[in-house]
Design a protein around this nucleic acid. Structure first.
Length: 114
DNA sequence: GCGGTGACTGACA
DNA sequence: CTGTCAGCCACCG
């Protein structure tokens, strides 16, 4: 596949992330049919201009925001996440980065009520 | 063609 | 927890 169609798939995968959830770059790449291409996802995002794209739902695999703490991008991302109910801790960390299919299993095994 | 550079990642120390 | 490293690959000078 060529670069532009890969780009399209990535944008689709990002648009598919539900409100209130977050994914890692690697997750998005996999969802786009491009396993192991997290850096490509990052590249696409860095050049993205589309305002409607939920880019703020994409974090690193360790649950941290990719931008350095204190940067404009970091602050903006924290704002957008909190605006849709995603708790962001100190240092721009988000608790459990939901990974699509595992989410239900996780929810079934994990009992937060306590 | 070649080396440096990332909104990255998983393994290991 | 922090840091290093090899893999990754499109882009740029």
């Amino acid at each position: 596949m060529d670069a532009s169609s890969a780009r399209q798939r990535i944008l689709e995968a990002i648009r598919a992330v539900p409100r209130g959830q977050v994914r890692s770059y690697g997750d998005v790449a996999r969802a786009a049919g491009l396993p192991g291409r997290a850096r490509l996802v990052a590249r696409v995002l860095s050049g993205n201009d589309e305002q409607a794209l939920p880019w703020h739902r994409v974090l690193r695999a360790d649950g941290r925001i990719a931008f350095p703490v204190g940067s404009a991008g970091h602050d903006e991302q924290v704002r957008r996440l909190q605006a849709e109910g995603v708790p962001v801790r100190e240092g721009g960390r988000v608790d459990r980065v939901a990974s699509s299919a595992d989410r239900d299993l996780d929810a079934a095994l994990w009992h937060p009520d306590r």
